[in-house]
Design a binder for these strands. Structure first.
Lengths: 168, 168
DNA sequence: TCTAACGTTTACGTGAACGGCAAGGTTTGG
DNA sequence: CCAAACCTTGCCGTTCACGTAAACGTTAGA
């Protein structure tokens, strides 16, 4: 029995880059901004990442690409990396049940705030869709006028036809 | 009755800026990128905007701020400004009913594609929410373990609670 | 042990999206 | 007709989010 309890297999920066679709430079840059720190460093100062880091990087990428958040916003969303590291260590470092519960509850709160932020963005986008559909209706109204052979009624079509309910 | 059929009241760039929440510099920059062109120019080359331009600028701002699209993407979304100008002129310039119908139909197609693009972004964001809720469930699972006084089952919680639908 | 492949820090370069200023022309009220 | 306020076209500066190259140390395998 010479093996450690579990060998989490730490990855070096290029492997992480390949796995996440980011570049090594980008990952280092994110560290510089305080978005994440590698789980460990090798003897010779190589950055070493665990699977939790991988998840985090993928999450960051989603926030950047899909949600279009600025890195500064993402930093806010992820809360301070120091706090995360502290929590990790606190969790590993205590056997106190109450303390552990508190830490996990905090983590849940953070996730909830993340969801709320993304949800807010979804709401704004849905408002845009609604608006665009309004412009669509406007155009459809014009088309109906043309089909009827009437004059386009240049003075603003005032909320024309019924709206078949929210499509999609 | 000395008034022209309708006096659309054209605005100069600063008024437009105030109305849209953009700066004059930004509006000129957008024109430089081909996102929009003023409806007209004054005798002395002042840019003059109509209400359609206002709507367009507000839409651009929404795409930029709310959706987080890059201006290059927005340009794609709005189709080429030249095409828009051509259509405008074609519409004003023809009395042919068929032609007008075709133009309006094209415009509707463009709006539909805009909606589809935004909807795609909404879908990606909802996937992120689903994912975040997964992480939440994971944490809640830990919490339940702690509440039960058991060991956290360090070897990866294997898909704990019910999971509605296919993520990803 | 040696070296090819990979990593480190440091630093300058780049494209996107504007900000800001200069030098001059335009509009409009008095 | 004249000045204040607004506009024009350059053009250089700045921030963000990295790219890229230099000079050097580390790791793993033959």
């Amino acid at each position: 029995m010479t093996d450690t309890p579990s060998a989490p297999r730490l990855l070096r920066i290029q492997e992480v880059a390949a796995d996440t679709g980011l570049t090594a430079r980008t990952i280092r840059y994110y560290e510089e901004l305080g978005l994440l720190a590698p789980a460990a460093r090798s003897e010779g100062a190589y950055r070493l990442y665990d699977t939790e880091d991988l998840e985090r990087l993928r999450f960051i990428r989603g926030l950047r690409d899909d949600a279009g958040f600025a890195l500064a916003d993402i930093r806010q969303l992820l809360e301070d990396e120091d706090a995360r590291a502290r929590n990790r260590e606190r969790f590993r470092g205590t056997a106190d049940e109450d303390e552990r519960r508190r830490i996990v509850r905090d983590a849940i709160g953070i996730v909830d705030r993340q969801v709320a932020t993304i949800q807010a963005k979804i709401n704004r986008l849905e408002a845009m869709v609604t608006e665009a559909e309004g412009r669509r209706d406007h155009l459809v109204g014009h088309l109906v006028d043309l089909e009827a052979g009437r004059e386009p009624d240049h003075t603003h079509t005032p909320a024309r036809a019924a709206h078949p309910g929210t499509p999609r």
